[in-house]
Amino acid sequence: MALLEVNNLGISFGGLRAVDDFSISIEKGQLYGLIGPNGAGKTTVFNLLTGVYKPNVGIIKLDGQDITGKKTIDVNRAGIARTFQNIRLFGKLSVIDNVKVGLHNQMGYSVFASILRLPSFRKVEAQLQERALEILKVFDLDKEAEVLASNLPYGKQRKLEICRALATNPKLLLLDEPAAGMNPMETLELMETIRFVRDHFDMTILLIEHDMKLVSGICEELTVLNFGRILCQGKTSDVLNNPEVIKAYLGE
Protein backbone atom coordinates (compact mmCIF):
# COMPACT_ATOMS: atom_id res chain seq x y z
CA MET A 1 0.00 0.00 0.00
CA ALA A 2 1.19 3.49 -0.83
CA LEU A 3 2.23 5.82 2.00
CA LEU A 4 0.24 8.73 0.59
CA GLU A 5 -2.96 8.13 -1.36
CA VAL A 6 -4.83 11.12 -2.71
CA ASN A 7 -8.02 10.69 -4.71
CA ASN A 8 -9.98 13.27 -6.73
CA LEU A 9 -8.91 16.16 -4.54
CA GLY A 10 -10.48 19.52 -5.44
CA ILE A 11 -10.93 23.00 -4.04
CA SER A 12 -12.50 26.21 -5.34
CA PHE A 13 -11.88 29.78 -4.27
CA GLY A 14 -15.04 31.59 -5.34
CA GLY A 15 -15.48 30.79 -8.99
CA LEU A 16 -11.89 29.66 -9.47
CA ARG A 17 -11.25 25.92 -9.45
CA ALA A 18 -7.73 26.10 -8.01
CA VAL A 19 -7.17 22.35 -7.87
CA ASP A 20 -9.38 19.85 -9.64
CA ASP A 21 -9.45 16.06 -9.68
CA PHE A 22 -5.98 15.71 -8.20
CA SER A 23 -4.88 12.14 -7.53
CA ILE A 24 -1.47 10.92 -6.54
CA SER A 25 0.06 7.83 -4.97
CA ILE A 26 3.46 7.89 -3.33
CA GLU A 27 5.27 4.78 -2.14
CA LYS A 28 7.31 4.70 1.05
CA GLY A 29 10.87 5.89 0.46
CA GLN A 30 10.07 7.57 -2.84
CA LEU A 31 11.39 10.94 -3.97
CA TYR A 32 8.45 12.44 -5.80
CA GLY A 33 8.30 15.74 -7.69
CA LEU A 34 5.36 18.08 -8.26
CA ILE A 35 6.02 20.55 -11.05
CA GLY A 36 4.11 23.00 -13.19
CA PRO A 37 4.10 26.59 -14.40
CA ASN A 38 3.48 29.48 -12.01
CA GLY A 39 -0.03 29.54 -10.63
CA ALA A 40 -0.70 25.93 -11.54
CA GLY A 41 -1.85 25.13 -7.99
CA LYS A 42 1.20 23.33 -6.60
CA THR A 43 1.37 25.17 -3.29
CA THR A 44 -2.41 24.87 -2.99
CA VAL A 45 -1.96 21.09 -3.16
CA PHE A 46 0.56 21.34 -0.30
CA ASN A 47 -1.87 23.49 1.68
CA LEU A 48 -4.59 20.91 1.12
CA LEU A 49 -2.33 18.05 2.18
CA THR A 50 -1.29 19.86 5.39
CA GLY A 51 -4.77 20.99 6.40
CA VAL A 52 -4.29 24.72 5.78
CA TYR A 53 -7.22 24.50 3.32
CA LYS A 54 -10.07 22.03 3.56
CA PRO A 55 -10.81 20.32 0.25
CA ASN A 56 -14.31 20.55 -1.28
CA VAL A 57 -14.03 17.01 -2.57
CA GLY A 58 -11.57 14.15 -2.42
CA ILE A 59 -9.82 11.91 0.07
CA ILE A 60 -6.31 12.09 1.52
CA LYS A 61 -4.94 8.97 3.16
CA LEU A 62 -1.60 8.76 4.94
CA ASP A 63 -0.43 5.27 5.75
CA GLY A 64 -4.02 4.03 5.49
CA GLN A 65 -5.33 6.72 7.88
CA ASP A 66 -7.88 9.19 6.53
CA ILE A 67 -6.57 12.71 7.21
CA THR A 68 -8.92 14.63 4.91
CA GLY A 69 -10.02 17.95 6.40
CA LYS A 70 -8.00 17.56 9.59
CA LYS A 71 -6.40 20.58 11.24
CA THR A 72 -2.79 21.44 10.51
CA ILE A 73 -1.54 20.36 13.92
CA ASP A 74 -3.34 17.02 13.65
CA VAL A 75 -1.96 16.46 10.17
CA ASN A 76 1.49 17.12 11.57
CA ARG A 77 0.90 14.66 14.39
CA ALA A 78 -0.32 12.11 11.85
CA GLY A 79 3.05 12.41 10.13
CA ILE A 80 3.29 15.15 7.49
CA ALA A 81 5.87 17.91 7.91
CA ARG A 82 6.62 20.68 5.44
CA THR A 83 8.86 23.57 4.54
CA PHE A 84 7.68 26.80 2.97
CA GLN A 85 8.28 28.52 -0.36
CA ASN A 86 9.02 31.80 1.43
CA ILE A 87 11.10 30.70 4.40
CA ARG A 88 9.16 30.75 7.65
CA LEU A 89 11.58 30.35 10.52
CA PHE A 90 11.18 31.53 14.09
CA GLY A 91 13.51 34.44 13.43
CA LYS A 92 14.07 35.67 16.97
CA LEU A 93 14.79 32.19 18.33
CA SER A 94 18.21 30.58 18.11
CA VAL A 95 18.89 27.90 15.52
CA ILE A 96 18.74 25.12 18.11
CA ASP A 97 15.53 26.50 19.62
CA ASN A 98 13.91 26.34 16.18
CA VAL A 99 14.65 22.63 16.12
CA LYS A 100 13.48 22.24 19.71
CA VAL A 101 10.13 23.75 18.74
CA GLY A 102 9.97 21.06 16.08
CA LEU A 103 10.56 18.47 18.81
CA HIS A 104 7.72 19.97 20.87
CA ASN A 105 5.35 17.02 20.55
CA GLN A 106 8.10 14.39 20.71
CA MET A 107 9.23 15.05 24.25
CA GLY A 108 7.37 17.03 26.88
CA TYR A 109 6.77 18.04 30.45
CA SER A 110 4.00 19.99 32.13
CA VAL A 111 3.80 23.76 32.54
CA PHE A 112 4.22 23.28 36.28
CA ALA A 113 7.43 21.37 35.71
CA SER A 114 8.79 24.27 33.68
CA ILE A 115 7.77 26.97 36.17
CA LEU A 116 8.91 25.03 39.23
CA ARG A 117 11.96 23.54 37.46
CA LEU A 118 11.03 19.98 38.50
CA PRO A 119 13.43 17.10 37.78
CA SER A 120 11.38 16.15 34.69
CA PHE A 121 12.20 19.59 33.26
CA ARG A 122 15.96 19.05 33.56
CA LYS A 123 15.80 15.51 32.25
CA VAL A 124 13.69 16.29 29.18
CA GLU A 125 15.56 19.53 28.42
CA ALA A 126 18.83 17.58 28.37
CA GLN A 127 17.29 15.05 25.97
CA LEU A 128 15.92 17.84 23.80
CA GLN A 129 19.32 19.50 23.63
CA GLU A 130 20.98 16.24 22.65
CA ARG A 131 18.42 15.31 20.01
CA ALA A 132 18.34 18.83 18.52
CA LEU A 133 22.13 18.90 18.25
CA GLU A 134 22.06 15.48 16.62
CA ILE A 135 19.72 16.74 13.92
CA LEU A 136 21.70 19.96 13.43
CA LYS A 137 24.92 17.96 13.10
CA VAL A 138 23.48 16.00 10.20
CA PHE A 139 23.03 19.29 8.34
CA ASP A 140 26.31 20.74 9.54
CA LEU A 141 24.53 23.48 11.46
CA ASP A 142 25.64 22.48 14.97
CA LYS A 143 28.32 25.18 15.05
CA GLU A 144 25.67 27.85 14.55
CA ALA A 145 23.34 26.39 17.19
CA GLU A 146 23.21 29.57 19.27
CA VAL A 147 22.94 32.02 16.34
CA LEU A 148 19.58 33.71 15.80
CA ALA A 149 17.76 31.98 12.96
CA SER A 150 17.18 35.27 11.12
CA ASN A 151 20.95 35.90 11.08
CA LEU A 152 21.73 32.71 9.16
CA PRO A 153 22.66 32.97 5.48
CA TYR A 154 19.89 32.07 3.05
CA GLY A 155 21.03 28.57 2.16
CA LYS A 156 21.39 27.59 5.80
CA GLN A 157 17.95 28.97 6.60
CA ARG A 158 16.53 26.57 4.02
CA LYS A 159 18.44 23.74 5.66
CA LEU A 160 17.21 24.75 9.10
CA GLU A 161 13.62 24.61 7.89
CA ILE A 162 14.23 21.02 6.81
CA CYS A 163 15.81 20.29 10.22
CA ARG A 164 12.77 21.69 12.00
CA ALA A 165 10.38 19.70 9.82
CA LEU A 166 12.36 16.49 10.42
CA ALA A 167 12.34 17.12 14.17
CA THR A 168 8.58 16.47 14.20
CA ASN A 169 9.42 12.90 13.19
CA PRO A 170 7.26 12.79 10.03
CA LYS A 171 6.52 9.92 7.69
CA LEU A 172 6.26 12.26 4.72
CA LEU A 173 8.26 15.41 4.12
CA LEU A 174 6.91 18.14 1.82
CA LEU A 175 9.48 20.58 0.42
CA ASP A 176 8.08 23.70 -1.23
CA GLU A 177 10.63 25.00 -3.76
CA PRO A 178 13.70 24.13 -1.69
CA ALA A 179 16.09 25.45 -4.36
CA ALA A 180 14.39 28.83 -4.84
CA GLY A 181 16.95 31.62 -4.76
CA MET A 182 19.95 29.29 -4.70
CA ASN A 183 22.92 29.46 -7.06
CA PRO A 184 23.91 26.34 -9.09
CA MET A 185 26.54 25.30 -6.53
CA GLU A 186 24.10 25.54 -3.64
CA THR A 187 21.49 23.66 -5.66
CA LEU A 188 23.94 20.81 -6.25
CA GLU A 189 24.63 20.69 -2.52
CA LEU A 190 20.91 20.74 -1.81
CA MET A 191 20.36 17.75 -4.11
CA GLU A 192 22.92 15.84 -2.09
CA THR A 193 21.18 16.91 1.13
CA ILE A 194 17.74 15.79 -0.05
CA ARG A 195 19.07 12.40 -1.15
CA PHE A 196 20.89 12.10 2.15
CA VAL A 197 17.73 12.93 4.13
CA ARG A 198 15.84 10.22 2.24
CA ASP A 199 18.50 7.59 2.95
CA HIS A 200 19.57 8.66 6.45
CA PHE A 201 16.08 9.25 7.89
CA ASP A 202 14.37 6.63 5.73
CA MET A 203 12.07 9.41 4.56
CA THR A 204 9.48 9.78 1.84
CA ILE A 205 9.73 13.16 0.13
CA LEU A 206 7.35 15.11 -2.07
CA LEU A 207 8.82 18.30 -3.48
CA ILE A 208 7.70 21.26 -5.56
CA GLU A 209 10.44 22.65 -7.74
CA HIS A 210 11.06 24.79 -10.80
CA ASP A 211 14.73 23.92 -11.17
CA MET A 212 14.65 21.21 -13.85
CA LYS A 213 18.20 20.11 -13.10
CA LEU A 214 17.22 19.34 -9.54
CA VAL A 215 13.97 17.66 -10.55
CA SER A 216 15.51 15.45 -13.22
CA GLY A 217 18.50 14.77 -10.96
CA ILE A 218 16.72 13.39 -7.92
CA CYS A 219 13.03 12.76 -8.51
CA GLU A 220 11.98 9.26 -9.44
CA GLU A 221 8.46 10.15 -10.43
CA LEU A 222 6.73 13.37 -11.36
CA THR A 223 3.29 14.89 -11.52
CA VAL A 224 2.82 17.93 -13.72
CA LEU A 225 0.07 20.38 -12.83
CA ASN A 226 -1.33 22.98 -15.21
CA PHE A 227 -4.28 25.26 -14.42
CA GLY A 228 -5.10 23.13 -11.37
CA ARG A 229 -5.35 19.88 -13.31
CA ILE A 230 -2.94 17.01 -13.78
CA LEU A 231 -1.30 17.28 -17.14
CA CYS A 232 0.90 14.25 -16.95
CA GLN A 233 2.09 11.72 -14.39
CA GLY A 234 4.78 9.04 -14.39
CA LYS A 235 8.51 8.30 -14.53
CA THR A 236 10.66 11.43 -14.57
CA SER A 237 12.31 10.81 -17.93
CA ASP A 238 9.00 10.01 -19.63
CA VAL A 239 7.27 13.05 -18.19
CA LEU A 240 10.01 15.49 -19.14
CA ASN A 241 9.95 14.27 -22.75
CA ASN A 242 6.18 14.51 -23.02
CA PRO A 243 5.28 17.10 -25.70
CA GLU A 244 2.31 18.32 -23.64
CA VAL A 245 4.62 19.17 -20.74
CA ILE A 246 7.11 20.94 -22.98
CA LYS A 247 4.26 22.93 -24.47
CA ALA A 248 2.95 23.96 -21.04
CA TYR A 249 6.38 25.15 -19.96
CA LEU A 250 7.74 26.71 -23.12
CA GLY A 251 4.61 27.54 -25.07
CA GLU A 252 4.11 26.56 -28.68
Partner: peptide, 23 residues
Protein backbone atom coordinates in the same frame (compact mmCIF):
# COMPACT_ATOMS: atom_id res chain seq x y z
CA UNK B 1 11.14 26.32 28.71
CA UNK B 2 9.40 24.21 26.10
CA UNK B 3 6.25 26.28 26.59
CA UNK B 4 8.11 29.57 26.27
CA UNK B 5 9.68 28.41 23.01
CA UNK B 6 6.26 27.41 21.71
CA UNK B 7 4.83 30.83 22.64
CA UNK B 8 7.70 32.68 20.98
CA UNK B 9 7.36 30.44 17.93
CA UNK B 10 3.73 31.57 17.64
CA UNK B 11 4.91 35.17 17.90
CA UNK B 12 7.55 34.75 15.19
CA UNK B 13 5.42 32.78 12.73
CA UNK B 14 1.96 31.40 13.41
CA UNK B 15 1.73 29.35 10.22
CA UNK B 16 5.07 27.67 10.79
CA UNK B 17 4.26 27.03 14.47
CA UNK B 18 1.05 25.32 13.43
CA UNK B 19 2.87 23.27 10.82
CA UNK B 20 5.14 21.73 13.46
CA UNK B 21 2.17 20.80 15.64
CA UNK B 22 2.02 23.66 18.17
CA UNK B 23 -1.48 24.14 19.58
Amino acid sequence: SRDGRAIMAIRDNVIAAESVGIN
